[in-house]
Each structure stands twice: as structure tokens, then as C-alpha cells.
């Protein structure tokens, strides 16, 4: 085992991890406003990718136009989900909302299967498959692009949460009743968080669709994305980024050592171990907010 190989594993792991972060950012956005992990984020990601395909391959639009247009459509869909489904549940126990998101995920998967079928399709972003050489290191270009998108979204959302609208969203996450009492529209805020998460789903769907093709398997990203979000602390965008890098590195380096021992499949085991250990040892994750004891 030489150092060049090890750093190559670590760097590519970190880049893949940032792609999980991309997914996790969507989860965090919704968690911040609703205190519920959105189990439908995988379904949304898949729908995002299919909408891009429908606009580009099927309707013939160029990708540079299809992607922003898909983002607009998904933004509307996110608002629609709040209006049609979530609003009725405001004030109900969180478990009900959680079950609703699960139902929504199943619905989105069923719908995409019915409309677009089960065969895998590909999104051609035009990113070269030739690896990039960084000194002696091989690096995947598409992963680098995806990681760049994740970091850009991270910066954008960090700034957003300092704007007045962003502060109102954080207020909603803290206390619905107090928000209503000062005239904040909780419904609108929750809708906005779903809309933003749906836009993130387009970005996630396009990048991952380019890497592994667009089919039902895209929705399974939920497992890794959720692990990253939990490790990061569920309500922390910074946590999603840091945890993504950590999980990506552990997974890639760890699998290299473990796979020969267990005969493959150790990636899933590593992810599962991280999720379970986080919940057991540090339930609020790396950067999650603690509930403050009242004075």
C-alpha cells in the first residue's frame, strides 16, 4: 500500500462524499423547517433527473436550458407538496409527517415507473470520462464537478440563512407557535423549504444520473444521504458537508481494506455502522443543535 494510492482513495472518497452531501443538503433544508427527515428526498431526486431528461431528450431542449427549467418546475412541485399534503398535518405529531414523506416517496417511485418505465437512461452532461491527473493522482472529473456544485450550494445556503427570509425559516424551525404569533407564515416557510429541497434534488439527480444512470436506483441514494445528514446533525448545512467528506473517505478507504477480507459488499456495512454508531453515541451528530435547557 503506497501513499499515492491511499491519497487517491481518500480524495476520490471525499469527492464522492461531497456528492452524498449534495443529497443531504436537501434533507437538511426540510429538517430545518419541519423537524422531520424527508424520506421522499430520494424520490424527489429521481423525479428531478427524469424531468431533466423529459425536457432535454424527449422535448429536445439543450441541457443548459433543461436543467434550470426543471429546477423551476421542481420548485413549484415542492410548494405544491406543502399545499396539498403537509398543510393538513401542521401541528400533528412528527411521526405522522414522517409517514407522509414515506408515502410520498413510494408515490413518486410508482409514478416515475409508470411514466418512464424501468430501463436505465443516461444524462449526457458532456463531462469527459478521461480521469484528471493531479501529479500522480487519478481523479474523476464528474465527481469533481459534482463536488463543486455541492460546495457552491453550501455557500449559497449559508448566505441564504443570513437573509431575512432565511432567518424567518430558522425561526419557524425553532417554534411554530411563536412564529405565528409575530405574523410569520409558517405554511409559506415550510413550502419554501420543500421548494428549495426540490431544486437541490434536480442538482443531485443530474450529477448522480450522469454517474450511475437514471432509474429507480437513484432513489436509494436516500440511505447514504440520510447517513450523512444524521452524522452532520440533521439541521446543519455545514454538518452535511463535513459529514459527507468523512463518510466518503471512510467508505472508500475502508472498503479497500475490508473488501478482500469479507469478499465484497463492505461499503454498505461501513455506511450502516456509521449511521448506527452516530445515533447511539452522538444522536445530534457533529454539528446538530442541542436542545437548550430552559433557565
Amino acid at each position: 500500500m503506497d501513499w499515492v494510492f491511499l491519497s487517491e482513495l481518500a480524495i476520490n472518497g471525499a469527492l464522492t462524499g461531497l456528492l452524498y452531501s449534495l443529497f443531504a443538503i436537501g434533507l437538511v433544508l426540510i429538517y430545518k423547517a419541519s423537524s422531520v427527515p424527508n424520506l421522499a428526498q430520494g424520490g424527489l431526486t429521481m423525479v428531478g433527473a427524469y424531468v431533466v431528461l423529459a425536457l432535454s431528450h424527449d422535448a429536445g431542449l439543450p441541457l443548459w436550458l433543461a436543467i434550470p427549467l426543471a429546477a423551476v418546475i421542481m420548485f413549484g412541485l415542492g410548494f405544491g407538496i406543502e399545499r396539498v399534503a403537509l398543510r393538513r398535518l401542521a401541528g400533528r405529531p412528527v411521526i405522522m409527517i414522517l409517514m407522509l414523506t414515506l408515502g410520498l416517496d413510494i408515490f413518486l417511485r410508482g409514478t416515475t415507473l409508470a411514466i418512464w418505465g424501468g430501463t436505465s437512461r443516461s444524462i449526457e452532461l458532456g463531462v469527459s470520462y478521461e480521469p484528471l491527473f493531479l501529479g500522480d493522482l487519478f481523479i474523476s472529473r464528474i465527481h469533481l464537478v459534482g463536488a463543486g456544485v455541492a460546495v457552491a450550494l453550501f455557500v449559497a445556503f449559508m448566505l441564504f440563512f443570513r437573509t431575512r427570509t432565511g432567518i424567518k425559516l430558522r425561526a419557524i424551525a425553532d417554534d411554530y407557535m411563536a412564529s405565528w404569533s409575530v405574523g410569520i407564515s409558517v405554511e409559506h416557510g415550510v413550502g419554501l423549504s420543500w421548494a428549495l429541497a426540490s431544486v437541490v434534488a434536480v442538482a443531485t439527480g443530474v450529477i448522480w444520473g450522469e454517474i450511475q444512470g437514471v432509474d429507480q436506483a437513484l432513489s436509494l441514494l436516500l440511505l447514504k444521504g440520510l447517513t450523512v445528514a444524521v452524522l452532520g446533525g440533521l439541521d446543519s448545512i455545514l454538518g452535511a458537508i463535513v459529514a459527507g467528506i468523512i463518510l466518503g473517505v471512510i467508505e472508500n478507504v475502508g472498503a479497500e481494506f475490508l473488501d478482500p477480507l469479507v469478499g465484497g459488499g463492505s461499503r454498505e456495512l461501513i455506511v450502516a455502522a456509521v449511521l448506527i454508531l452516530t445515533v447511539m453515541i452522538r444522536p445530534h451528530g457533529l454539528f446538530g443543535r442541542h436542545d437548550i435547557e430552559r433557565v
Binding site: R170, A171, D174, D175, S181, I292
Partner: peptide
């Protein structure tokens, strides 16, 4: 101003 203060604690 609702009962129990209820400030936005994390802000």
C-alpha cells in the same frame, strides 16, 4: 406575546 416567553432559542 404568548405564554412562557418562547423566544427563538437558536437565533
Amino acid at each position: 406575546v404568548i405564554e412562557g416567553r418562547r423566544v427563538f432559542e437558536h437565533l
